[in-house]
Design a protein around this nucleic acid. Sequence first.
DNA 1: GGCATATTGTATCAGTAGGTACAAAATTAA
DNA 2: TTAATTTTGTACCTACTGATACAATATGCC
Lengths: 196, 196
Amino acid sequence: MAAGRPRNFDMDQALDQALRVFWEKGYEGASLPDLTEAMGINRPSLYAAFGNKEELFRKALDRYETGPTAFVARALEEPTARQVADRLLKEGINMVTHPDHPGGCLAVQGALVCGDDAQPIREELERRRKAGEVVIRKRFQRAKAEGDLPADVEPNDLARYVTTVMRGLAVQAAGGATRKELLRVAELAMQAWPSK
Amino acid sequence: MAAGRPRNFDMDQALDQALRVFWEKGYEGASLPDLTEAMGINRPSLYAAFGNKEELFRKALDRYETGPTAFVARALEEPTARQVADRLLKEGINMVTHPDHPGGCLAVQGALVCGDDAQPIREELERRRKAGEVVIRKRFQRAKAEGDLPADVEPNDLARYVTTVMRGLAVQAAGGATRKELLRVAELAMQAWPSK
DNA sequence: GGCATATTGTATCAGTAGGTACAAAATTAA
DNA sequence: TTAATTTTGTACCTACTGATACAATATGCC
């Protein structure tokens, strides 16, 4: 089979740059010139390689989930529910305030609300946020089955609590809060943990 | 003084509609046609009465703060810090899930991140969020001076904690969480309150 | 009524949004 | 070397963005 002219950019590197732009400006706020400049490619190359803006965002989002947010899966492996929650908060803070990439969380600030055109993206992000909540809930359900949580505690509520705090932390980080400030918040948030 | 042709719309009513659109779609996501249609006026009337899109947003934001978010000032009047926090969370939830207006919080979803043009708005919202945090902090500082909080507790941290949870609740509400779900979260969040 | 003033509606502006046509360039297969 | 294939770069498209010029209209004051 024939080969054709080779592309002179790395797809993953370009995607990382697109991710950075979407993260920093949101889906709507990221313009095609913003993206092509950061990715170091021109418009037709972007469309040939990634489809369109919406598909590019989805691919950047996939990369976001296998990269920066991989800490969630790791945190779930902690032995107790309490340790899971503690690590989710701490590593979450580490992520949303990490100096190597934009502050905050793409799943929150990518398109929390938006115009009509971007609604599919808003819904996609909402779906993924929901999915993140579900894996945490399942982990806490398991914890309860293992006797690791009091009988009168709803894993559902606990998962929603941790998730809600994490999203609040993400908003704070997007606004410039420091890691140190947010770690104090996490410490307080963990005071709510049942049966200390 | 002469009068000229009277405007045939109510400024406050129009502003309320603009507020609704910005709340629902964010600053960038709200287009001029979105705004004029909701406000029931045409473009030149909008510009004559409110300046431009940015000024309109600022005026809608002022109205937001004297209307939907007025619960904050009321909550601060509660006798104890604990009651203040509890009421902030509960009334905050009531607000961000109220059926009479869009879900979530304008100060969070109006422009958490955005493109270059909207940066002034993003910064304005960040300023106002910060100001909201400050009034809560001051209330907790007073509480501490009054012996209403343990000596080893930082009012600063407590204010940031409450604020962070409220913002998390706002994100959840923007994503469609119900009032009932969020009240369970608030209940858990209050478990963290010092010296029960 | 006539004048000054202010708002309305239409029609339009320049700039930018996302997206693409098309030819030149760079590769592999034959 | 030639043919087939794929990417690149330029130039461009349509639609929509926020914003206005201007004439028509509606008021209060004299």
